[in-house]
Simulated scan of single mutants.
Amino acid sequence: MKKITLLILTFTLIVSCYEKYIPRNIENIKIQEFKMDNTSIRAIVAIDANTMHYAGSKADVGFTSDAGKSWSTKHITYQDSIIPHFRSLAKNGDAFFALSIANPALLYKISKEKTELVYTENHEKVFYDALQFFDDGLHGIAVGDPTEDCASVILTADRGNSWSKISCDNLPEFADDEAFFAASNTNIKTIGSTVWIASGGKKTRILKSDDFGKTWQIFETPIIQGNGPQGIYSIDFSDKNNGIIIGGDYSKPTENKANKAITKDGGKTWTLVADNQNPNYKSCVQYVPNTNGQEIFAVGKTGVSFSNDAGNTWVEVSKDDYYAIQFVDKNTAWLSGNQKIGKLILE
């Protein structure tokens, strides 16, 4: 018995050593830029090093499957006159879902066979900000600014074919002027049946559900708050416990006070990191896959920054302005911005 116990302990120690993160020696970071005229792109779905999809501000949804050598684009109009401004895009199975901001809210399911409108909402205050699916493929969620005294949250449980809005009776009450930012489609994060949503404005808080959006909790954060452009613009988790939020004040993008925080308990409590240090305002933050939650990239109109110690310290790697970033592997990511797409390579 002692021998078996010793073998198990030895194996555990070996596995732990292999899992320990060793910072990489990244000698070069390249960003290849692709011009995308007349559209602002805040929502992307990165598939692999050759394939990515986007949704833009001029009712355009498009993709490349040859690493950016060529692009296919389609335009979607509503009732022949309304041009949807898309800031949310998600993939589920073989279909893509694009959601517009402003009134009316328009959510399209796009497949090779057809494009169909699966949800509409008319309200003077309607403004949807982000859209994601859960790992099971059945459930999906989109979040928008309040039309009453709670967040606007719509759910699907049938792969996106139909959507319904949650009653405020089942959601935490929001403060006046607390809302969301449609900056990069990353103020929602899902893992398993859990979803986190980050707010801003009057309050900067985290809404969390562990059951596909049926029941909710809400947690305070120390991120800058108090008026419209202040708050959390992006959230990501490396696992169910460890996560990061980032944002700042869009109207004062060079400021870096109280704009980055991390959690180690699944979003219940948050601790500021690199406070009063760069990076300053950012609209998107993403963990690099397979780096044990240590490597992180953040992008925004103030440039591209990188951390290899879980967000505690950062370096600026590019002054190029981008809205969003999404990794496909440890060395490759796609980015989007104003009239451009980028492809980032780590060497």
Rank of each mutant, 00 (worst) to 15 (best):
T10Y: 15
F11Y: 13
I14C: 07
K20T: 15
Y21L: 06
I29M: 09
Q32G: 12
Q32H: 14
E33R: 14
F34G: 01
T39F: 08
A43G: 04
I47C: 06
I47S: 04
S57Y: 05
S57H: 03
A59I: 11
V61C: 05
V61M: 07
G62F: 02
G62E: 04
A67H: 12
H75M: 13
T77E: 15
Y78F: 09
I82E: 14
I83Q: 10
H85G: 15
F86D: 08
R87K: 12
S88K: 02
G93N: 06
F96L: 15
F97W: 02
L107N: 00
Y108P: 00
K109C: 08
E113R: 13
K114S: 07
T115V: 06
E116H: 11
Y119K: 14
N122D: 12
E124K: 15
K125N: 08
A130D: 09
L131N: 07
F133M: 01
F133S: 00
F134L: 01
F134C: 03
D135I: 09
G140Y: 11
I141L: 03
A142E: 00
V143L: 11
V143F: 07
G144R: 09
D145G: 01
D149H: 10
A151V: 07
A151Y: 05
I166R: 15
D169L: 13
N170H: 12
N170D: 12
N170E: 15
L171F: 10
L171S: 04
L171W: 11
A179W: 01
F181A: 08
S184C: 00
T186L: 07
N187T: 07
I188P: 00
K189P: 11
T190V: 00
G192E: 10
A198D: 04
G200S: 07
K202V: 12
R205K: 11
S209T: 06
D210Q: 12
D211G: 04
D211F: 03
D211T: 06
K214H: 08
E220M: 13
P222Q: 12
G228P: 11
Q230V: 03
G231H: 01
I232F: 04
F237A: 09
N241V: 03
G243A: 09
G247V: 02
G248F: 03
G248P: 01
D249C: 02
Y250A: 11
I262L: 10
I262M: 05
K264Y: 11
K264I: 13
K268L: 12
T271I: 13
A274V: 05
N280E: 14
Y281C: 00
K282G: 14
S283P: 08
V288P: 01
N290T: 06
T291L: 02
G293R: 00
F297C: 03
V304D: 02
N308F: 03
D309T: 07
W314K: 06
V315K: 14
D320A: 10
A324M: 04
F327V: 05
K330V: 13
N331K: 10
T332P: 01
A333Q: 05
W334D: 07
L335F: 01
S336P: 02
